[in-house]
Design a binder for these strands. Structure first.
Lengths: 145, 145
DNA sequence: TATCAAACGATAACTTTTATCGTTTACAAT
DNA sequence: ATTGTAAACGATAAAAGTTATCGTTTGATA
């Protein structure tokens, strides 16, 4: 047994991922980045250490990390913009199993927020809530197994 | 004074938008669409009524409608995927002007939700909240104009 | 060390969105 | 109603973001 802290090697072992130089640097760079970097931003930083790295490698490994839970995807990516006419304030229930999206009214959600401004002087226009969970039909399916 | 219900003409007048045939059909078609259509899906439907309409017109008017508040954008569009390493539970403040994303803790958000299940038997795992608004720096910028 | 699947780099292709530009149309002011 | 003008339209090129392809290189296991 080596050091007590979890190394990148350990992390990869946990998730059954091969340890490559590119992945290691990618991981270290991302850990050192504040905020919510885009793949291009990550790419620019990693190139400082591995000038020959390909953008495709950055994309492939970001996906790999997201899928294995090493890091989290911030913006839900539907591949394109989506719009809706429904002008009654409502939010969305997203099934983590089957990815179905259903609407839910603000009142039914039982959500209370009266704030107009938030820390940092952020002026609130509206809230967009995604409730992540398991829909009724996926729950039934789980019980029959 | 004509009919009591609000016509598309009235809506345009309210927002200072010119009434064109394309916009009228676009609006009617979107009102008749369930769910969260993408621009391509809207385009396909509108073409049934105006085969010569351009996809660019659909995009331009969707943006116009969103900006003027006639309809709402569902998926926040940051232009690209974003990721984060932060594994502490938190939500996001997204500036509708400059698209900047800042973290906000669950406690600071002052959000109350005790529900474990929601209508339709949806089992809640977690909430993902995007607060849409104007960040402090964009507010300052707006005041200087 | 040798083997082989997996990962890499380079780049083409694809998808989504925006910009450009000549033509057409809506609006208001005659 | 006619006309002038700014705005909107259609066609399409270009940009931005992402994914797929494929020959070469590398990591993991034996």
């Amino acid at each position: 047994m080596q050091a007590a802290h979890k190394t990148f090697r350990d992390l990869c072992a946990e998730h059954g991922i091969a340890v490559t130089h590119q992945r290691q640097i990618l991981y270290e760079v991302m850990q050192g980045m504040e905020g919510h970097p885009s793949p291009e931003e990550v790419y620019a930083r990693v190139r400082e250490q591995i000038p020959s790295i390909s953008l495709a490698t950055v994309y492939k490994n970001i996906h790999l990390f997201v899928e294995s839970g090493v890091l989290r995807e911030v913006s839900l990516h539907h591949g394109s913009i989506r719009v809706e006419m429904n002008d009654v304030a409502h939010h969305h229930m997203v099934c983590s199993h089957c990815k179905a999206i259903a609407d839910i009214g603000e009142a039914e959600l039982g959500l209370e927020t009266k704030r107009r401004t938030l820390p940092g002087g952020f002026l609130v226009e509206r809230f967009s809530v995604d409730v992540i969970g398991i829909c009724a039909s996926c729950q039934r399916e789980a019980q029959n197994n």
